[in-house]
Simulated scan of single mutants.
Amino acid sequence: MSLSLTPDELRFRDEVRAFIAAHLSPESRRASFLNVSFFSDPDIVAPWQKALHERGWVAPGWPHEHGGPGWSAAQRWIFESECARAGAPQLSPMGIKMVGPVLMRFGTTEQKKFYLPRILSGEDRWCQGYSEPGSGSDLASLKTRAVRRGERYVVNGTKIWTTHAHFANRMFALVRTSDEPRQQDGISFLLIDMKSPGITIRPIMMISGDHDVNQVFFDDVEVPLANLVGEEGRGWTYGKYLLEFERGGGVNSPKLKYALEKVRLLANSDLSCHAISRPEIATKLSEIELDLQTLEFAELKVLSALQRGDNPGPVSSILKLRASEVHQAITRVGVEIVGQNALVEETRRPLHALDDEPLIPEDVLSAVPRHLNGRANTIFGGSSEIQRDIIARQVLGL
C-alpha cells in the first residue's frame, strides 16, 4: 500500500531516515535480524533505546506531557515503517505500550512521575504477571493472592509464561485481594519490584531453543500500598485496558512487511535454489502480501482513533488475531523456502551472539527457530480462540 505524504511528512520521513543512518549500527541490525523472538534481549535494545531516548523518540504513541513526541498518526506510521525497513531492534512493549498507558490513565501523580521517565530511559525493564498454571485463557480464576498487612501487601502464588522476567526489575501483576461472587471483582493491579525478597524465577525453554519465558514464584513478597494502581478490586478493568494496547496499540504491519521482504529475497536467491519459481511458493507469498495490506488499513484506522484520544477498543482483538496469523504464515513459508537447510540445527543461543562461522548461512540460520518461536504468537496476549470470542461478542454483537 502506498500512502500519499504531505511535504511536511516527507521532510519528517527524511529526518527519521537520517537519524537511523546515523545511530543504527550494523551490529544492531544483524542482532535484530537474528533475533527470533517477539522481544529483543536488552543487549540488542540498549544502544538503540539510548539513542532514541536522547532524541525523545522512545515512545511514539505517548503525548508530550508524559515525555513522548506527541506525533500525529501519520508520523507514528512513518517512524514505525522506517524503523522496520531499516531492521531496527524492537523495544520491549511491556513498559512503553502496556503498563505505560495504564499508568497515564489510572496511575497516581507520584506513580507517573516515578515510573514513566524510567520506562523511557530503559532504566526499568518490565514483565507481565498475568497467566498462572490453570489460569491462562480463564484469567479471572487467578489465585496469586495479595493480603494487606498494615502499609503493605504480602503476595503469595506463582505466575507462568512470564516473558523476560529474567531481565526485568519490575512486574505489573494481577493479584487477588478479595473473594467476590464475581471473580473479576476481587482482582487488583500491583507494581512489584522484582528484586524483592521471596521472588524466585525458574526458566522455561522455548521449542526454538531460546530462553524467553519463565515461571515466577512469590513467597511472602512485600509490596508497598503505594504500588497499587487505581482502586483495589478494579484490577480486571485496568488489565483489560492494558490488553487493548498490547493487542492493538502498536504497529505490526511494517515489521511484518520487512519480514516478508526478507523471505521473498531468500526465495529469489541461490541459497533457496530460487524457490520463488515454484508456483506454490509464489502463491503463498502473494496471499500473505494481500493479508498484510488488509492489516495495514485496519492499523491505520486504529491509529486515527488513538490520535483522537480513544483507546483501541475491541478491534484490537482483530489486529492481534490477524497479525499473529500473518506472522506464522511468513515463518511457515520461510521454512519451506530454506528446504533441506531446515534440517540443520544450530544449538547455540542467542544466535546474534555467535562469533564464529555458523553451520549454515545467516540468511537461513534463523528460519526454523523463528518459525518454532512464532507458534506462541497465537497464544500469548490472549489466544486466537479468545480473540474470536471477543470479536463475535463485542464487534459483531453475536
Rank of each mutant, 00 (worst) to 15 (best):
E244A: 11
D219C: 11
D219E: 15
P224M: 13
A226P: 02
S253Y: 03
Y241E: 05
V251T: 11
F218Y: 12
N214S: 12
L243C: 13
N252M: 14
G248P: 05
E232V: 12
A226E: 14
V251C: 00
V216L: 04
F218R: 02
R234T: 11
E244T: 07
L228D: 05
L242K: 11
V229Y: 07
V251S: 04
E222D: 08
W236P: 07
N227F: 05
V221I: 05
V251F: 01
E246Q: 13
V213F: 10
A259C: 01
G230T: 05
L228Y: 02
P254V: 01
F218Q: 02
G209S: 00
L228C: 05
Y241C: 02
D219K: 14
S253H: 12
S208Y: 03
G230R: 03
D219R: 15
D220A: 13
H211Q: 13
Y258W: 10
L242C: 12
D210M: 00
E231G: 01
E244G: 08
E231R: 15
M206T: 09
G248M: 10
H211E: 09
Y241K: 08
D210G: 00
V251H: 00
H211S: 12
L242Q: 14
E232M: 07
S208F: 05
K257T: 11
L260T: 03
N227Q: 15
Y241P: 09
G230S: 05
E232G: 10
L228P: 02
T237A: 11
E232N: 11
K257Y: 11
V223T: 10
V221Y: 05
F218T: 01
V216W: 06
S253I: 00
Y238R: 08
V229I: 11
N214L: 02
E222Q: 10
G230Y: 04
V223M: 09
L225I: 13
